[in-house]
Amino acid sequence: MQTLLFEFRAMGGPCSFHLRGTSGSHAEQSARKAIAEVRRIEAKFSRYLEDSVVSRINRAAGNAAVQVDEETRQLLMFADQLWRQSDGLFDITSGVLRQAWNFSAQALPSPYRLADARSRIGWERVHIGDDRVRLADAGMEIDFGGFGKEYAADRAAVVLREAGVEHALVNLGGDLHALGDPSAASAVPWSIDIQHPRPPVAHPMASIARVSLKQGGLATSGDYERFIEVDGRRYCHILNPLTGWPVSVHQSISVLAPNATAAGALTTIAMLKEEGAIAWLESQGASYLAVGHGGHVRTNAPQFHLTSTQASTATSPQP
């Protein structure tokens, strides 16, 4: 069955659609619609764009409420749900910590800058009305980076399905949504490699596991995407809003879920849970593969097939 590849850039990185079993002209038209949807979401919610709704909300912090549409309100309510489920660890006001942490310099933040950034974190100070949102204090910000790409991946899959595409793999910078009917006899799973968080020097692109995915979302969070090393210790970009400091217990966590948004939220919260990650994922009924600080691998899902010899300390699937 023919698979057509459509590549583009959005949300700061490379993206692609793999469309299977769709004719060339139909596939191209469908891909264009889905790419337009991804770019619509980026234009609307990116904190990097001055006219986005997120930027307007942030500029009005401590001053006025900003009118929002239903889509924005629903995403804000989703952020509220994640904040509550994570006991405050998933907080979309914590993006201000980037003003203290510079992952382009091999230096830790000053205590003053870290304290100043932490003083402006607090989801409980975000007030959401029927059609308005207000940040209580000047200097506060919200950032949809914790689920924006995943939401865009799911929306792209919806657009493709509405256009008549039955089998597709949406990949937005590693956040994936597989579109298909797993019960169909003709459905061929997508084979997806999960990046090794500590690959051998000779094989920098080595994978640690392979996933066969017919339908649903897959997301991975790890300490290898952006980090600095100071005095031999790694400090990654995943920051605990309650302490202001990076997580350190897991190298990476991958999660399978019904859609990319859920998978991304689960893996991010799990990284932030640190020692409590596995118990929390189990309590959520999530299918996961977790690579611990020492490189040991733990999974509870048969969909994850270990591929790296570096994963020799993997445990058997958990009950």
Rank of each mutant, 00 (worst) to 15 (best):
I192T: 05
V96T: 10
G285E: 13
K44M: 12
V247N: 06
V249Y: 11
L281M: 11
E275A: 14
D87E: 15
A27V: 02
E166A: 13
K44G: 03
H26N: 13
T268D: 13
S30R: 10
G88W: 13
F103K: 05
T309F: 09
S94F: 06
A152T: 07
V201E: 12
V170L: 02
D131Y: 10
G62H: 04
A36I: 09
D175E: 13
I142N: 01
T22S: 12
Y48V: 05
S254I: 02
G216H: 08
E275R: 14
I194W: 02
S283H: 09
P200V: 12
I41N: 04
M1L: 10
A34R: 00
W190F: 03
L97I: 06
P258E: 00
G180L: 00
D143A: 02
A10N: 07
D80G: 15
R20P: 08
D131E: 15
A178D: 03
S52I: 08
M77D: 15
L176D: 05
G180P: 00
I128P: 03
L213W: 00
R32Y: 09
L89G: 11
T93D: 03
R125Y: 13
I208R: 04
S191C: 09
A209S: 07
A138V: 15
K149Y: 08
A314E: 08
A105V: 14
M140N: 04
G216F: 01
A185T: 07
S46A: 11
E274C: 08
A115V: 07
R98A: 11
I278S: 01
L256V: 07
Q284K: 10
A260Y: 01
F6N: 02
S55R: 02
A219F: 12
I35W: 06
A163Y: 08
E229P: 01
E282F: 05
R98G: 05
L239V: 03
V255A: 03
A290Y: 04
Q284R: 14
L49M: 14
I208A: 06
R226W: 05
S16D: 11
D193C: 11
R132T: 13
E28D: 12
L281E: 03
L49R: 15
A277T: 12
V54F: 08
G139M: 02
Y48H: 14
I208G: 06
I253W: 05
